[in-house]
Amino acid sequence: MTASDYTATLARKRMGAGALLSDQFGRVLLVEPTYVPYWEVPGGSVEAGESPYAAVNRELREELGVLVRVGRLLVTDWTPPAPERTEGLMLIYDGGLLPPDQTARIRLPAAELRSWAWCTLPEAATLLPEPLARRVTAAARARQENTSYYLENGHFIA
């Protein structure tokens, strides 16, 4: 078996990259997509041949219309397969503080995003799917503790 034959047999995983953006009050920025019935962090799918870091920077420009200096990786979360999707790796990077002048320049692509909001972590937990709420909470904790975490479906792994 050649290396390319072997590579063709390996599992393929979805990858997504998002950013934890905060305001001066410690709230996190969430976006409301038009294509799913729940909110998300700004970010999206990593395209073929694209690094997760490049993807999160691209997605922030496309989704918010503002340039953000994305920092370090806060969370890597393995998500199990579900009937409508394959397993995946979801990454959250530190988007830092978005000051009021940049916040005022947010422009959403109407076909993709309905709205955005600053939310406390408890508010975010009511808008996000449970695994994503756990992921965002872990990302906020990782930022505060100056570390990074590995999760599975939003749960800490010992």
Rank of each mutant, 00 (worst) to 15 (best):
T86L: 14
M90Y: 10
T120W: 01
L132H: 05
T103W: 07
I92A: 06
T137L: 04
A140F: 00
L89F: 05
A117D: 09
T79L: 08
A117L: 14
T137A: 09
E123R: 09
L91H: 05
R107K: 02
L113V: 15
A140E: 05
A139V: 02
L121G: 07
R85V: 14
A133I: 08
A142H: 02
L121C: 04
T103Y: 04
L113T: 14
D94G: 05
C119S: 14
T86E: 15
E84D: 15
C119N: 12
W116T: 12
A138Y: 06
T76F: 10
G96C: 04
R105E: 12
C119D: 13
P80C: 09
T76Y: 11
E112D: 15
P83Q: 10
R134Y: 08
V136H: 02
A138P: 05
P100I: 07
L97I: 13
T86C: 13
I92L: 12
G96W: 00
G88R: 07
P109T: 05
L132R: 07
L74A: 03
G95A: 02
A104F: 09
L108H: 09
R107M: 02
L91D: 01
Y93P: 03
T86D: 13
E87P: 14
P99M: 03
A142K: 02
A104S: 13
P129Y: 04
P83G: 11
T79A: 01
L121N: 07
Q144M: 12
E123K: 11
P80L: 10
W118E: 11
S115Q: 08
V136C: 00
R143M: 02
A125C: 15
P99N: 06
I92G: 05
A139Y: 00
A110K: 14
E112H: 14
A125E: 15
P129G: 03
P129F: 00
P122N: 05
G88M: 01
W118Q: 10
E84M: 14
P122S: 12
P83V: 08
L91P: 03
P122H: 10
I92N: 01
L89H: 04
V75A: 00
L127T: 02
L113A: 15
L127V: 07
G88Y: 04
A117V: 11
I92R: 04
L97T: 12
I92E: 05
L132K: 10
P99R: 07
V75W: 01
E145S: 08
S115L: 12
T137V: 04
C119F: 04
I106T: 07
V136N: 02
E130C: 02
W118P: 09
A110D: 14
A82D: 15
I106P: 01
L132I: 09
A133C: 05
E130S: 13
W118K: 09
R134W: 08
R114W: 13
A124L: 05
R143Q: 06
E84C: 15
A139D: 00
Q144D: 07
R143I: 01
L132Q: 08
I106R: 01
V136S: 04
L74H: 03
Q144R: 12
L132P: 00
L128S: 00
P109N: 11
